[in-house]
Design a protein around this nucleic acid. Structure first.
Lengths: 203, 203
DNA sequence: TCTATTTGTGAACTGTTGTTCATAAATCAG
DNA sequence: CTGATTTATGAACAACAGTTCACAAATAGA
């Protein structure tokens, strides 16, 4: 039925509106200080309405995180799959992450905070998508080790952690710079790769 | 007066007991979920007593953070000042941090969470000691650049950020390992320095 | 147009937590 | 020992935020 389908579509749109509002408020205030009332207000709904679309605050938060991470992951995988060279794959991976986060700065803030919550509390329930992202990064690096681009001396797991940490750090600091003095985030992909692959020492 | 001095000393001891309890609870639950009641209970006091030693929850939290960071900073500075070579200075710096955090794991969790809170909210009030730590790391790297140990191509600020990020990442992952399979954290100083200075590429 | 169903509302309910304060216990000075 | 001062207590208070729900508005189908 056309009608029912449109109803479904409208429902999705409203759900997305709430997610957008949540993204903004969570990024602005952090999970704990963000209130359902704030989010509802931003989405131009009453607070009760939020509960028609999400079971509770947690479900809203996780839906937001999961869906955005899925977006990033699928984009990155798709683009990187178009080349064979491991170094090039890494480069594309970094660039896609930088582009994505430059376009989703609110989400980046939530993404970063979330990791620490998970670390601080012994909440072991890392989201599936987060795990997938980690696995994917690890697989890229393993391939790079096979191809001789990256030294096989290091444990791939640790490399993945450090690699991600460098990317995140560069993004964080870029976000903290005054808008006026900063160019596009993608310009920093070279810096990231050079630091990760060749280090800081004088060559 | 001897008597007054002992009273003062006892007061400090009680204050320290509360700080210890706070360190444990904050590390366990994170700032927001940690309650004054929990902390008081852990320190074997009633909740009101906490307010005899600290103005409010925030003051307790910041006192904890500041005092521990000061400890770390002064130890690291002292030890590193004993050598001239910039690479050696960096090495000592890393080792001291690793030793300190291995002995203060609860504090490390708080320390990490705090940075992200500061980033998530636009709370620009970074603590003085945190700033001092950053400045100190920067100065070490600047010296390393002068001595030709580290390439002058990079902005020292960014290097300091990345350097700290690598150290923190390695510690975080070490903390997450099962106690049984992990040796002392200090053993990882070589890994950190190699990754930071020479990168992950096959040499 | 009229009724049924879906969707939206926001006041009210509930539990939690930071903080205060009247009271009690402990310690001290003389 | 006694009154004064310091320190500790935990019930009570107030604010806040997640969640529910009785009711209202909007929409669909006839």
């Amino acid at each position: 039925m056309k009608i029912l389908s449109r109803k479904e579509r409208d429902k999705q749109i409203r759900r997305t509106d709430i997610l957008k509002a949540a993204e903004h408020i969570f990024a602005l205030r952090g999970y704990h200080k963000a209130t359902i009332r704030d989010i509802a207000k931003e989405a131009q709904y009453a607070s009760g309405t939020v509960y028609l679309y999400f079971k509770d605050k947690d479900a809203l938060y996780f839906a937001l995180l999961e869906e955005k991470m899925k977006d990033l992951l699928s984009i990155a995988k798709e683009k990187a799959s178009q080349v064979k060279d491991a170094r090039k794959k890494l480069e594309i991976h970094v660039k896609e992450a930088l582009v994505f986060f430059e376009n989703n700065q609110d989400f980046f803030r939530i993404f970063i905070s979330d990791e620490n919550e998970l670390f601080a509390e012994k909440n072991l329930l890392k989201s599936n998508t987060a795990l997938e992202m980690h696995l994917y990064t690890t697989s890229l690096l393993k391939e790079a080790q096979k191809q001789g681009v990256v030294s096989a001396d290091f444990e791939t797991e640790r490399l993945a952690d450090v690699f991600s940490a460098i990317v995140k750090t560069i993004i964080m600091k870029w976000l903290q710079e005054k808008d006026s003095n900063r160019g596009s985030l993608v310009n920093l992909s070279g810096l990231i790769l050079r630091l990760f692959l060749n280090g800081a020492a004088k060559s």
